[in-house]
């Protein structure tokens, strides 16, 4: 029901508002394109020198000028994957607990505590990871796991405490509050009439949860997961503290590695040679492109989900 502008002032205000909103939206797009242009411009030297080889090479030698993004991309992907594998199931279960099972007297303070977790600066997570989690991993967790499955290449290597697994766990704790908050809101918005219909037909709490609540909130859940993924993939300081900053491709979760963000944080300020600097900017460009591609894929997937779930309803 649209109100048509009656007076000249109203008409002017309408068109002015439309114009301003359009300009702001265009500004955002412009800034994004400008960032992309700058990244490409400053990484030209490296793009020209290495070409596609840059993506496959794990070399990182500032002395001879040989650079490759493979170890950084690998580290970014693996640490984010570990973070999601740990955080997503945990977030879903916590959200279900808060919405379906808990008494409001419990769910309210727990809800606040989760939101507080989200407000903690990432560098605090990094320090906590280095001073508390890494020694715990080195002394208790990693030797134990090593004894059980140490023969597997995935868990081989000395229990240093710092490394890919520890970085993944720290990241998981960082993205947990975001995913939990979104998923909890999604579950809370499921119409009670649907749930009551389920209960009325004799379904158990778990059956209603699985078949009604989660189904209904699937799109929101996927959105929440990718919010967490976006945070984890670009996280810098927390990861730098605990990942070991090592430019090698290693199969083991206990090994140290590096991510694109941690490499940039460590080496950008002092990269004096032009090719070195260009290689670092190219790493930034790769991260930009990865994030963009993930966003596009998510939007496409959500669209498909909407069609599929919509058809079923």
């Amino acid at each position: 029901m649209e109100r048509r502008p009656h007076t000249k002032v109203q008409a002017f205000a309408e068109s002015w508002f439309h114009g301003a909103a359009l300009a702001c939206a265009a500004l955002v797009l412009l800034v994004m394109l400008a960032i992309l242009a700058e990244l490409v411009h400053h990484s030209r030297l490296s793009l020209v020198k290495f070409g596609w080889k840059f993506l496959a090479s794990a070399a990182w030698n500032p002395v001879t000028g040989e650079f490759g993004a493979a170890s950084s991309i690998f580290g970014t992907v693996v640490s984010t994957l570990i973070a999601l594998v740990v955080a997503v199931p945990l977030a879903i279960v916590i959200a279900l607990f808060l919405v379906e099972v808990a008494h409001p007297r419990i769910s309210k303070p727990v809800g606040y505590a989760i939101e507080l977790l989200a407000a903690i600066p990432s560098i605090i997570y990094g320090m906590w990871g280095l001073f508390v989690l890494a020694p715990t991993m080195a002394v208790h967790v990693q030797p134990f796991v090593g004894k059980l499955v140490g023969k597997l290449p995935l868990f081989s290597g000395p229990p240093m405490g710092i490394g890919m697994l520890t970085a993944g766990i720290v990241l998981a704790l960082m993205v947990l509050p975001f995913i939990t908050a979104v998923v909890r809101d999604v579950f809370a918005l499921v119409p009670s009439v649907l749930k009551e219909a389920g209960y009325g037909m004799g379904a158990t709490t778990w059956e209603v949860t699985r078949k009604v609540t989660m189904r209904h909130g699937m799109r929101g859940m996927v959105g929440g997961v990718f919010l967490g993924l976006g945070r984890a993939i670009g996280e810098t300081m927390a990861v730098t503290f605990v990942i070991g900053n090592d430019h090698r491709l290693a199969a083991s979760l206990f090994a140290s590695g590096n991510t694109i963000s941690s490499t940039l944080a460590n080496e950008f300020t002092e990269a004096s040679e032009p090719v070195y600097l260009a290689a670092l900017v190219e790493l930034g460009l790769i991260l930009f492109v990865i994030t963009l591609v993930i966003q596009i894929l998510v939007q496409l997937w959500l669209k498909r989900l909407k069609l599929r779930l919509g058809a079923e309803q």
């Binding site: 500032p62 002395v63 070991g244 002092e270």
Partner: peptide
């Protein structure tokens, strides 16, 4: 194998800031 510079390609180990 390695040479001398402010940053080198370390054959092994972890890096601290």
């Amino acid at each position: 194998k390695v040479g001398t510079d402010k940053a080198v390609a370390w054959p092994t180990g972890v890096g601290g800031k």
